[in-house]
Design a protein around this nucleic acid. Structure first.
Lengths: 206, 206, 206, 206
DNA sequence: TATGAATGAGAATTCATTCAT
DNA sequence: GATGAATGAATTCTCATTCAT
């Protein structure tokens, strides 16, 4: 019984993508060698070029594929009837939990998205835009429902919150050992205190 | 009468650093060629190696030199008797104003610090640590003086605020045209609303 | 009722040869990919290796097969009782008419024979030798019958005439549009004037 | 006393060109490796790319440089007051003597011009065109002065004569040993008999 | 010190060929 | 026989770094 061709092809493509995520996360795009990705995937160097146009394409494909997966999980998880505040908390948690459950991927996305800032901007980046849109949707909804203040631009807040999450994830990901879920919960709690309630003890006085 | 040698050396070193900041900002560290930096500095390729050990050292030196300058300006500016809240505002503003007054430098720091996340972390990064320390000092002081809430870890808040500022600066820096001071003031105002007063309209209810 | 195997084999081999002629003519041997030949022939890449040892063998086989065909047509056409001069004219015409009736083949032979000058010489080339022999036979016969001058070496004349025809065919084959029979007739006429009657208006004076 | 920079640069460029002519002649463009050319020239691989854009450019440059040299020698030699017939003879001789005096170059030009027929046509080839123009000038002048028949197109005759010379040179160049000047003189004599006086013993009868 | 030509290690990519299905 | 996915050897070209001048 031969495996269906599509299955086999898909498997190999996926193996290469997983290897790329791992190797790019470990060494960074520019220091990673295509041959290292091939070795990690257990295929010949040339095989990579059967599935991807070149090294850049491999990076972009890995990024898009993984972001798609993240976006669809987020979308599923957040399409609840819960109040916006709870969903924003959940978003924070899911963002940071990536460092617990898929450390390679967390590192890949955190480091590569930055490493390739220009690169990725130039070639557009619809999946990342989608990610930000999900976050922005939460903010806007919260504003409409009267949960969040309306005197701030949702677009700017989105960026600010993403920056926060991203930087915190970077510290998690660069630390010697993988964080636990409890540690992540603590971080989420801290971030909420800052951005939901604000740092000021006596806001009216400000 | 030739200029004092030290002066001349210093000048050339500075010219190379300025060129590195510009070229690395424009093309990214890995895509920038040493010969492009040399050309921009108006020196021969080999001359760079009289002042810096190698390309990595040039990056680190440029980063540290510029961060030192930024840190000292910050320190000067913030050693006032003003209340912590005002100083935090001032910190936000100074961070983002870099995009207005030294766009190359803002881009260099934003993009390179990311691009070289691991790289720069691995080789330690005392100047960046110092920058974060200044910010943390403001938080801690605010907490001690009763202006900021005490139930958050200053270290985490520091990271979160830095991430916010960094991400917002990235958007400023990657946009087609240099922002104005007014635009930056608007951004600062928005960020303050989020992190000082909090997003929630009715915090007690949360 | 399946077709006899030999027939099927022959067909496929022939399809591959035709494809090779076409693709090698279009792109040149070194720039042509085996996979392009396979695609043109409508077979899998690997199939080519069931019929030919390797890419070189495919080139040689295509060349020999086509030259055999050309030689046999020439032999048929020229085994008449016509005077040598007329047969030489006919030879010229048949050579150049290939550009009209089998442009791919004409291009393949003209360009590849040159491209592979050494290559083909090294591996011997009996079919090409046979082609030259037919031409030489005409010269020798003409000399014996007193139609052509005897104070020239038939071998050298053969080479010279072939070079002439080959170069003229190259120009025909590289021109934008396929030449017509009339154009070819004109070229033949011109070449005859040169090599049969000579360029000199007043030969005795020379 | 340092050698003038231009001198040194020119020398190295020339060494690389000479090496390219030799190696390309020996192995053909596609089978020749850039590293072989570098080794032959006694420089590092990378040095070649300081003087030439890429391997193609090296081929074209070598071809153009050598053709320029040939053209200027031809021009000098042929700008005499001698009758066209003598100058045509001289042209034949000079063409073929290349095989005696610069065997590598003769082989390079003969084989590469063919090997790269398409390649060179596509990228234009002014130096080769100039060579043909010199030859055509002789024909036309001969026609104008009444030495050569006028009922042939000089352009076609030019091509035909070049093809003859080229093919004969190919045989000289591919033979085991370098021909002598005497042998070349014999070939020239044979070619003259064919194209000046014509093959026919009794032209009027034709 | 300064130069910039030269170096050569290193990496991405191609493609003829193989072989399991 | 036929397929075409996989292989990996081979090659071009780049560019950080060196060093003779």
């Amino acid at each position: 019984m031969t495996p269906p061709k599509d299955r086999s092809r898909t498997d190999k493509r996926e193996r290469i993508l997983a290897a790329a995520v791992k190797v790019f996360a470990e060494r960074g795009f520019y220091n990673a060698k295509v041959s290292q990705v091939a070795a990690e995937a257990g295929v010949a160097d040339g095989t990579i070029y059967l599935y991807f146009k070149n090294k850049d394409d491999l990076l972009i494909s890995a990024f898009e594929d993984r972001m798609s997966w993240i976006n669809s999980r987020l979308t599923n998880e957040l399409e609840t009837r819960q109040p916006p505040v709870d969903r924003l908390r959940r978003f924070f948690a899911m963002h940071l939990l990536l460092a617990v459950h898929s450390r390679d991927l967390a590192e890949f996305i955190t480091v590569e998205l930055r490493q390739s800032a220009r690169f990725i901007k130039e070639y557009k980046n619809p999946k990342f835009a989608e990610y930000l849109n999900i976050l922005r949707g939460l903010i806007v909804e919260g504003q409409q429902q009267g949960a969040f203040r309306r005197d701030v631009d949702a677009r700017i807040v989105t960026r600010a919150l993403f920056g926060m999450l991203d930087e915190v994830m970077l510290t998690l990901v660069l630390s010697r050992k993988t964080p636990t879920e409890e540690q992540v919960a603590f971080y989420v709690d801290q971030l909420e205190k800052v951005v939901l309630q604000g740092l000021l003890l006596n806001p009216d006085a400000s």
